[in-house]
Amino acid sequence: MTTALLLIDVQQGFDDAEFWGPRNHPDAEANIQALLQSWQDRRDPVVLVHHDSIKPDSPLRPGQPGNDFKPELANARPDLVFGKKVNSAFLGDVDLDAWFKTRGITSFVLAGIQTNFCCETTARMGGNLGYDVTFALDATFTFALEGPDGTTLTADELTRATATNLHGGGFATVKSTKEILSAIP
């Protein structure tokens, strides 16, 4: 059985700390790169997705340098690249579900940015669609976020919530990059 690697929104615009605020997982890009290298060494399918924001002030708008992939993906040889304007990669410019199904792909490993938005949403939809989803938690990162009551949750608190949501809800298996790579024969 072939497992695809799905890399979500690994874009330069997320390096804008002034726009996004404090992030977590400083090794996320190195972990993403390690996963990518492993998938490419085995010639397993790699899918790159980029967020094409429609918000005028977003560094992820098409045509802006922030929309470009980060340098860690410079040597990527993806089987599929497409954009999306919403959180889920299953609702992007390509029918990802159909693309997976025509290739017999029933499982994927997910990594990228942001842990609690596009990554979690894609993992949840993948689980709902019947895919065996593995969420590479330390190959994602996010930023602190203010809630409706004015309380700010740190990036680490949001990441723990995502891991709990995915695990507790049965949407995905949450693992570290090391656990994923060590399980590959």
Rank of each mutant, 00 (worst) to 15 (best):
W20C: 00
P22E: 13
P26R: 09
P26Q: 07
D27F: 05
A30Y: 06
N31W: 05
I32K: 07
I32L: 02
L35K: 06
L35Y: 10
L35C: 03
L36K: 03
Q40F: 02
Q40R: 07
R42P: 01
R43K: 13
R43E: 14
R43N: 13
R43G: 06
D44K: 13
H50A: 15
H51C: 02
S53V: 09
I54A: 14
I54M: 13
K55S: 12
D57Y: 11
S58V: 05
R61S: 05
R61Y: 06
P62V: 12
Q64A: 12
P65I: 02
N67Y: 14
N67P: 01
N67F: 15
D68Y: 01
F69T: 04
F69A: 07
L73D: 09
L73S: 07
A74H: 04
A76Y: 04
A76P: 08
A76C: 04
D79K: 01
L80C: 11
V81F: 03
V81G: 02
V81L: 07
F82E: 05
G83D: 08
G83Q: 05
G83V: 04
K84M: 04
V86L: 12
N87A: 15
N87Q: 14
N87R: 13
S88Q: 09
F90T: 04
F90W: 09
L91V: 02
G92P: 07
D95F: 01
D95M: 01
D95C: 01
D97M: 00
A98F: 08
A98S: 06
K101W: 04
I105G: 03
I105N: 06
T106P: 01
F108G: 02
F108K: 03
V109D: 13
L110Q: 13
A111M: 07
Q114V: 15
N116M: 02
F117V: 12
C118G: 14
T121V: 14
R124V: 06
R124H: 02
R124Q: 04
M125G: 01
M125D: 13
G126P: 09
G127A: 05
N128F: 12
N128I: 12
L129W: 04
L129Y: 15
G130Q: 10
G130H: 11
G130A: 07
D132T: 13
D132V: 01
V133G: 07
T134F: 11
D138Y: 11
D138S: 10
A139D: 12
A139S: 13
F143C: 00
A144Q: 08
A144P: 03
L145G: 01
L145I: 00
